[in-house]
Nucleic acid binder design. Structure first.
Lengths: 178, 178
DNA sequence: GAAAAAAAACCGTCCAGGTAGTATAGTGAA
DNA sequence: TTCACTATACTACCTGGACGGTTTTTTTTC
């Protein structure tokens, strides 16, 4: 195992526990076991539980930022690059979203301040989205609708049928180009 | 204090703790103190922590259902009653939303199955919204956008300016009537 | 390039503090 | 008499974090 890898394995283990067993089962020992590391080893990398959760959030914020940035860079659009990328990445990536959910829930439970990197992300994106060549109100609505899908996945509240989801996705995309 | 009142006071106290101090501080003792009840008294009404959280969710689901139903009943619209009511209630009621946030987070942390009443609510609403006389895809997008506002409030992720929020709200409403 | 030293990456146990839930004895009101 | 509590004590358990090692890797020295 490479150097940086171990820390990230631990973060994945922590996310997995939150996703599958809930926040109350995110204990240092459980995380250590899930990651195949001793408790002491875990505490070497993350000297406290808060540090562990901070690690989760920082890591996923970085990932998410990269993903969106890559999508923007790839885009050949003139208008609506950012909102298009935001919608694409969020609609079509169930897996990283799971880690996102785990990170958010953990941070909210442990210490809301840990969410700051996410807040920064959203502030950046909202700025870009509003200056992206399309009506900012419409762009904001597209973002909000995308976030709405997210909310229902986070709590497993209401799953739209794949078909309806696709229709929603298409309609939102059509608004970007009209 | 009347009979039913005490239970509800306890539920409010629990929500308050979750909102202000986070899930990890929702202990039986803290809830009892916040509600001005002894621990024994609390356990008389809710024999376990899970029962307490179940109480929170059930109570808020009932409340939310009533609120939406009342708004629908009041409405003189022919088309889009449900989506209009859903958007109105959710946009304009910061306070019950706080209880909703607390209940959802607590249930998600303690036992996801406790969210079932909320799932039922959303299933009902989605059915009504899709049969409410306006394009179901558009109606769904309005619901999702409303939920998006919700998500950002839940995590304090990104607060739209009041102005932009108002513009979004107006545009969503205009879509209902067009 | 081998040995020695130092730093990094761990291991595993212990403990103080906190928590859910039980138990129990009693109180006042309807 | 029952309901809706109060007040307190107690248990059994779990958890974060401290701590003192040990092993592995890297760097330095000869």
């Amino acid at each position: 195992m490479g150097r940086a890898t171990r820390k990230i394995e631990i973060l994945h283990a922590a996310s997995k526990i939150v996703s599958e067993r809930g926040i109350f089962n995110l204990t240092l020992e459980a995380t250590a076991i899930e990651a195949g590391v001793s408790k002491g080893g875990l505490l070497y990398h993350f000297p406290s539980k808060e540090a562990l959760v901070k690690g989760m959030v920082d890591h996923l914020a970085e990932n998410y930022r990269d993903k969106i940035a890559a999508s923007v860079a790839e885009s050949s659009k003139e208008k609506g690059k950012w909102i298009k990328s935001y919608a694409d990445v969020t609609f079509n990536n169930p897996y990283p979203n799971k880690e996102m959910h785990a990170g958010l829930l953990a941070a909210k439970a442990v210490n809301s301040d840990l969410l700051d990197p996410i807040r920064n992300l959203y502030n950046e994106w909202q700025t870009e989205i509003e200056q992206d060549g399309i009506d900012p109100v419409k762009a904001t609505i597209i973002r909000l609708a995308t976030d709405g899908i997210w909310l229902s996945e986070l709590f497993d509240i209401h799953h739209l049928s794949e078909e309806r989801k696709e229709e929603v996705y298409s309609k939102l995309k059509s608004w970007i180009d009209e």
